[in-house]
Computed example of a mutant assay.
Amino acid sequence: MNVQIIERDGEPEYAVVPWADYQALLQAAGKSAVAVPNQPDAEAAQPLNQLSALREAKGLSRDELARAVGISPHYLGMIESGERQPDAAILRALAWVLGISGWQA
């Protein structure tokens, strides 16, 4: 079994195992297998190509939205142009600020 240990202040805090090993551990413990956690679907990601239009509809400049989300205006521009795919935390922050649902990846 391949286990990665993540430490904080020199003390083990988390153990990370490959998914198949995790499922085997659950099975050995007599527990049911766990389904794959929620993954963003194509429908949830679709409005991302409309990000600049959503931002403009809210009357926000690129600088204002970036500041509210906690990212740089340059990075927001790369997201709007499709050059970068934001992580789940940024998607949630964008959805929150823009008042939309579906980006809860």
Score class of each variant (00 low, 15 high):
Asp63Lys: 12
Asn38Asp: 11
Tyr14Thr: 12
Arg67Trp: 03
Pro47Val: 00
Val34Ala: 13
Asn38Arg: 12
Trp103Cys: 03
Asp21Asn: 05
Gln85Pro: 03
Gln50Trp: 05
Met78Glu: 14
Ala45Ser: 05
Lys31Ala: 13
Ala35Cys: 01
Arg92Ala: 12
Ala20Glu: 15
Gly30Lys: 05
Gln104Glu: 13
Glu11Lys: 15
Leu25Lys: 03
Leu54Phe: 05
Arg62Lys: 11
Ala15Tyr: 03
Leu51Lys: 06
Ile71Gln: 01
Lys58Asp: 08
Asp41Asn: 09
Ser52Asn: 14
Asp87Tyr: 10
Ser101Glu: 15
Ile6Asp: 04
Glu7Asp: 13
Val36Ala: 14
Asp63Phe: 01
Ser81Val: 12
Pro40Asp: 04
Ala45Asn: 04
Leu26Gln: 10
Arg92Pro: 00
Arg67Thr: 11
Ser101Thr: 15
Arg84Pro: 13
Leu26Pro: 02
Leu54Ser: 06
Glu56Asp: 14
Ala33Trp: 00
Asp9Phe: 10
Gln27Ala: 15
Pro18Tyr: 01
Glu56Met: 14
Pro12Glu: 00
Ala33Gly: 15
Ala15Pro: 00
Ala42Phe: 08
Gly59Tyr: 09
Ile5Glu: 01
Glu80Cys: 04
Gly10Arg: 10
Arg92Met: 13
Glu64Tyr: 04
Ala66Leu: 11
Ala93Met: 08
Pro37Asp: 14
Ala105Leu: 08
Leu98Asn: 06
Ala24Trp: 10
Asn49Cys: 07
Gly99Asp: 15
Gln85Met: 07
Arg8Gln: 12
Glu11Asn: 06
Arg84Leu: 07
Trp103Thr: 00
Met1Thr: 11
Ala93Gly: 08
Ser101Gly: 13
Asp9Thr: 11
Ala24Leu: 14
Arg67Gly: 03
Ala20His: 13
Glu11Gly: 09
Arg62Asn: 02
Glu13Lys: 13
Gly70Asn: 06
Glu11Pro: 06
Glu56Arg: 11
Arg8Tyr: 15
Ala66His: 02
Leu98Tyr: 07
Ala105Asp: 15
Ala44Ile: 00
Glu7Thr: 11
Pro12Trp: 01
Tyr75Val: 09
Met1Lys: 06
